[in-house]
C-alpha cells in the first residue's frame, strides 16, 4: 500500500520540471538570439553591400569624369557659358554675404576688444577670420544651396526626359558636355567668388570700424594686410578649389543618377545640397588639420 509521497520525490519532480522549463526558455532564448544574430548579420551585409555598391558607383563616375576631362574636344564654349551661369549669377548674393560678414564680425568683436584696449587689433582679427575660415565656408555653403541644387535639378530633369540618353545615342559624350564643364566651372568660380567675398568682407569690416570708432581707410587696410600672411591665403584658396569640385561633382552625380519619374528630380536637387554641405564641412575639418600641421607646428 503506497504511503504518502516522500518529500525527496516531490523535490525531485520539481527539479525535473524546473530543468525542463529552463531548458525550453534557454533554447527559446537561444533561437531568438541566433535569429537576431542572423538578422543583424544579413542587415549588416545588406548595408555593406549597398555601401560598396555606392562606392563603386562613385568611383566609376569619378573615373568617367577624369577620363572625359582629358579627352580631345573640350567644350570651351559650354564652360564659358557655365562660368557665366555659376559665377556671374551668384555675384550679388556672395557680395552681399561677404559685406555683411565683415561688417557684423567687426561690430561684434569691437566691444570685447575695446575692453582689453586692443581695438586696433580688430581689422587684423576680422581679416584673418574672414579670409581663413568664414568666407570660404559660408560662400561654399551658399554655392552648395544655389549651384549644387541647380545642377542636380537640371541634370535630373535631363535624365528623366531622356535627354542624356539622347546625347549618348547620338554618339556624343554627355559626361564631357554636361558634367566636365559644370565641375570645371565650379572649380574656377568658387575660389573667385570666395576671393570676392574676402575683399568685400574687408570693406564691410571697414564700414563697421567707421561706425564703431573710426579709422582711416589706409590705416585700416594696412592693419588688416599686415596681419595676413601668405600662409593664410594659400591654404584658404586651395580649400575653396576642393569646395568647388565637391559642389559641382555632387550636383552632377545626383542629377545624372536620378531615377525615372519627375519626383526624383526634386530628390536629386535636395540630396545634392545636403551631401555637398556635409562634404564641405568634412573637407574644412580636414583642411584645418593639414594647415595646422604644415604651418604652425
Amino acid at each position: 500500500m503506497p504511503g504518502p509521497i516522500p518529500n525527496s520525490h516531490i523535490s525531485g519532480v520539481f527539479v525535473i520540471v524546473f530543468a525542463i522549463l529552463t531548458k525550453i526558455s534557454f533554447w527559446n532564448n537561444f533561437y531568438q538570439f541566433s535569429d537576431r544574430l542572423i538578422y543583424m548579420k544579413t542587415k549588416a551585409f545588406r548595408t555593406l553591400k549597398s555601401v560598396l555598391y555606392q562606392v563603386g558607383e562613385q568611383a566609376g563616375f569619378l573615373g568617367l569624369v577624369f577620363k572625359n576631362s582629358v579627352k580631345k574636344g573640350f567644350e570651351w564654349n559650354e564652360l564659358a557659358h557655365q562660368c557665366y551661369l555659376i559665377g556671374y549669377k551668384s555675384f550679388p548674393i556672395v557680395t552681399l554675404t561677404g559685406f555683411v560678414l565683415g561688417f557684423v564680425l567687426t561690430l561684434q568683436s569691437e566691444p570685447s576688444m575695446k575692453a582689453f584696449g586692443a581695438e586696433s587689433l580688430v581689422p587684423g582679427m576680422v581679416a584673418i577670420s574672414a579670409i581663413r575660415e568664414i568666407c570660404p565656408v559660408i560662400v561654399a555653403l551658399i554655392c552648395a544651396g544655389k549651384i549644387s541644387s541647380g545642377i542636380g535639378a537640371e541634370l535630373g530633369s535631363m535624365s528623366v526626359t531622356e535627354q542624356i540618353d539622347a546625347m549618348e545615342v547620338s554618339g556624343a559624350s554627355p559626361v564631357q558636355y554636361l558634367v566636365v564643364t559644370r565641375i570645371s566651372a565650379c572649380i574656377l568660380m568658387v575660389p573667385l567668388l570666395t576671393s570676392l567675398a574676402d575683399a568685400v568682407a574687408l570693406l564691410g569690416g571697414y564700414m563697421g570700424t567707421t561706425i564703431a570708432g573710426g579709422m582711416s581707410f589706409p590705416l585700416y587696410f594696412r592693419k588688416a594686410m599686415s596681419s595676413l600672411a601668405f600662409s593664410d591665403l594659400v591654404p584658404a584658396v586651395i580649400k575653396t578649389i576642393f569646395f568647388g569640385f565637391v559642389i559641382g561633382y555632387v550636383g552632377c552625380f545626383k542629377g545624372y543618377h536620378s531615377n525615372r519619374g519627375t519626383e526624383s528630380v526634386g530628390r536629386a536637387a535636395n540630396s545634392a545640397v545636403v551631401t555637398a554641405s556635409v562634404w564641405i564641412i568634412v573637407i574644412d575639418a580636414i583642411a584645418v588639420q593639414i594647415t595646422n600641421a604644415l604651418y604652425y607646428n
Binding site: 537640371e154 526626359t161 531622356e162 540618353d165 547620338s170 556624343a172
Partner: peptide
Amino acid sequence: FLFQGAALYDSMTVRENLAFPLTRV
C-alpha cells in the same frame, strides 16, 4: 534614334539642337 518623347535638349534652341550632332559627332 527617335525617342518616343522626342528628348530635345531643352536648354538649347532648335538650331543648336540640330547643330549638336553635326558639330559634336
